[in-house]
Amino acid sequence: MRISGNTIFIAGGTSGIGLELAIRLSKEGNAVIVGGRRRDRLEEITAAHPALGTVEIDVDDTASIRRAFEHVTASHPALNVLVTMSGIMHPEDLTSPDSLQIAERTVTTNILGTIRLASQFIPFLREQEAATIITVTSALAFVPLPMTPTYNASKAAIHSFTESMRVQLADTSIQCIEIAPPGVRTTLMGQEDSEAAMPLDAFVNEVIALLEANPEAKEIIVEAAAGLRYAEANGNYDEMLAMLS
């Protein structure tokens, strides 16, 4: 993926990693549209960042995805990059009946949301000369955080989905890139002030640098995520799992 000259839609880009990535990619010379559920939040983004486009989208709703697709592709016919950012993360006590509700919401947003977006946008993107789908997983796809079992599983599922999608689209114009963040200082799981989490600006800076350095990248793994990503290959999976436990 070239680092500039793209038209990029970031679904779930209204806060945290998604918004910071949108801002940085816009500064790199891309047209960027962010999507989210809350109209008031989208209006705040428009006021604070006039260069960014916005569109309402709820990835839990196939009709909403379709409406957002029609709006974005009509207003930005050069759209060539889709970033699937939408995701939720909640602790689960598997001995509690409430855990099932959390699990079902997580699967709907984190797995079905990404699959639905890909299904909707692939036919359009494959008509572009050069296109990219970026999925956002997590280092926890590779070594789980036991207190968030369905979140970990959802990210592992999207890692696997991205691998398969990359193979199926190999003969098309669409490149598939997976970004697997470590813990980052965002509101996800209340990590915004966590000393154990990576500063948001440092994470996005490293992502942009890795994308620029390797336009043919399949995965973007920042240094802070490498320990979990390669734990099994490095032979210290059990040690890493014990640490997260």
Score class of each variant (00 low, 15 high):
65 I>K: 01
65 I>R: 00
66 R>W: 01
66 R>C: 07
67 R>A: 10
68 A>R: 00
69 F>W: 02
70 E>G: 07
70 E>M: 10
72 V>Y: 00
72 V>E: 04
73 T>I: 13
74 A>D: 09
74 A>T: 10
75 S>R: 09
76 H>R: 10
77 P>Q: 12
78 A>D: 14
79 L>H: 03
80 N>V: 05
80 N>Y: 12
83 V>C: 14
83 V>R: 07
87 G>C: 15
88 I>Y: 07
89 M>G: 14
89 M>L: 12
90 H>S: 11
91 P>I: 05
91 P>W: 09
92 E>G: 03
93 D>T: 09
94 L>N: 10
94 L>A: 04
95 T>C: 09
95 T>N: 12
96 S>G: 06
96 S>V: 07
98 D>L: 05
99 S>Q: 08
100 L>T: 10
100 L>Y: 06
101 Q>H: 14
102 I>S: 02
102 I>L: 11
102 I>F: 12
103 A>G: 10
103 A>K: 07
103 A>P: 03
104 E>S: 14
104 E>L: 14
105 R>D: 04
105 R>W: 06
106 T>G: 06
106 T>R: 10
107 V>C: 09
108 T>Q: 14
108 T>F: 04
110 N>V: 04
111 I>P: 03
112 L>R: 12
113 G>A: 12
113 G>L: 12
115 I>N: 02
116 R>V: 04
117 L>Q: 04
119 S>N: 12
119 S>R: 14
120 Q>D: 07
120 Q>H: 09
122 I>E: 06
123 P>F: 09
124 F>K: 01
124 F>T: 01
124 F>R: 01
124 F>G: 01
125 L>W: 03
126 R>C: 05
126 R>T: 15
126 R>P: 00
127 E>S: 14
127 E>K: 05
129 E>R: 14
130 A>I: 00
130 A>D: 02
131 A>C: 06
131 A>Y: 01
132 T>W: 01
133 I>F: 01
134 I>E: 05
136 V>D: 03
137 T>R: 02
138 S>W: 00
139 A>C: 11
139 A>D: 02
139 A>P: 00
139 A>W: 00
140 L>P: 00
142 F>M: 09
142 F>T: 01
142 F>E: 02
143 V>N: 02
144 P>S: 12
145 L>V: 04
146 P>Q: 07
146 P>C: 06
146 P>G: 07
149 P>Q: 10
150 T>R: 03
150 T>Y: 00
150 T>M: 15
152 N>I: 08
152 N>H: 05
152 N>K: 06
153 A>M: 11
155 K>L: 09
155 K>E: 11
157 A>Q: 10
158 I>L: 14
158 I>D: 07
160 S>W: 10
160 S>R: 12
162 T>K: 01
162 T>A: 15
162 T>N: 13
163 E>L: 11
163 E>D: 14
163 E>P: 04
164 S>M: 08
164 S>C: 11
165 M>G: 10
166 R>W: 11
167 V>E: 08
167 V>N: 10
168 Q>F: 05
168 Q>P: 04
168 Q>I: 06
168 Q>S: 13
169 L>T: 08
169 L>S: 08
172 T>Y: 00
172 T>I: 09
172 T>K: 08
173 S>Q: 06
174 I>T: 03
175 Q>M: 07
